[in-house]
């Protein structure tokens, strides 16, 4: 049992490192780090001190957005840190930090010796980007409160906290499973053979299939868990989020990691929405609601208030 856990932690740390490394490594041994700063700055950290006369010469740097190699961005100021290891380039206009920038540094001079020319890619941390997809799908663009999807199941299962949590967890598991399968099939079968128009049929088929698979596996592996969550499995398929997520993945051409994050975010977002709603509805049971509003109508008004609150997150960006 202990071995198992250690193994688990090892795998997790490994994946986190892989993610972090993909974001940090630069293409040249002498340049340790290169990153955006503020709105219009790029900071480079070198492995050793660089010569001031070389560092201050604008002609040694050229920067362009990856898809516009013919348009060089204008550098207005170069600052060298006192230890001569960090160079900050300031640009005339704000940089479009969602795009990767290519920075070419010619003949880096360190202590009178040339370290060669470096072609570097400046981009946001990939890990940060993945995290922003997760948080985006979970809260900022919550599928229930800002995209208005999955409402039937949402109103049907948000009467009690226990039901809400059960439904949310089951849904998250199934959606991750189904989205990853749909992503795989879309990228490797539908797209290469120009069968895009079969999207709807294939995705709904895969969703039914994964619901069935989770049902069978759970029944065999953990009957106790099946007893608790089995009833929600049937409802999962009636939730339009589960078909919306694969469609969004196909539309945006996400890769495997991004797809995983979006589906995970969509699932947990649904769980959060259900939990919030059920907390309110449990209290509503005790309130004195006019008879015509009792039940669904008042639930809709409450959901509207939540949606207004979530509108406040709209457009927020993390990283």
């Amino acid at each position: 049992m202990r071995m198992d856990r250690r193994h688990h932690i090892l795998v997790c740390t490994f994946f986190i490192w892989v993610l972090l490394l993909t974001g940090c490594a630069t293409e040249h041994r002498f340049v340790k780090k290169v990153a955006f700063k503020d709105k219009n700055k790029v900071v480079m950290t070198f492995a050793g001190p660089v010569d001031e006369t070389w560092a201050k010469d604008v002609a040694n740097y050229s920067v362009y957005e990856k898809q516009d190699p013919d348009i060089l961005l204008k550098i207005t100021d170069i600052a060298l840190s006192p230890d001569k290891r960090t160079v900050t380039l300031t640009f005339e206009d704000a940089l479009n930090q969602d795009q990767a920038h290519i920075l070419t540094v010619t003949e880096m001079m360190s202590a009178g010796r040339s370290q060669g020319t470096a072609i570097l890619t400046v981009k946001k941390l990939y890990f940060g980007y993945l995290f922003s997809i997760l948080i985006g799908a979970m809260i900022i663009n919550n599928f229930v409160f800002t995209k208005y999807l999955g409402l039937c199941v949402f109103f049907g299962t948000s009467q009690k906290k226990t039901t809400a949590v059960g439904m949310g967890i089951t849904f998250t598991i199934v959606i991750v499973f189904a989205s990853m399968m749909s992503w795989f099939l879309y990228q490797f079968v539908l797209k290469p053979y120009h069968l895009d128009f079969l999207q709807v049929v294939v995705f709904i088929g895969l969703v039914s299939l994964s619901v069935q698979a989770v049902d069978t596996i759970l029944r065999k592996v953990n009957p106790a868990l099946f007893k608790a969550f089995g009833v929600y499995l049937v409802l999962v398929i009636a939730n339009c989020i589960i078909i919306a997520v694969p469609l969004i993945l196909a539309d945006n051409e996400y890769n495997a990691w991004e797809s995983l994050m979006l589906s995970l975010g969509a699932g947990t977002g649904f769980l959060i929405a259900l939990f919030l709603m059920s907390s309110v509805r449990e209290k509503l049971e005790l309130a004195n609601v006019p008879p015509t509003f009792r039940g669904l109508p008042i639930a809709f008004v409450v959901a509207g208030l939540f949606a207004l609150a979530f509108l406040g997150f709209s457009g927020m960006s993390i990283f």
Binding site: F293, L296, P297, I298, A299, F300, V301, A303, G304, A307
Partner: peptide, 12 residues
């Protein structure tokens, strides 16, 4: 966008 919830609630 959020007004849809209110309106559907009121209609019901």
């Amino acid at each position: 966008p959020a007004a849809g919830f209110f309106l559907v609630g009121l209609m019901m």
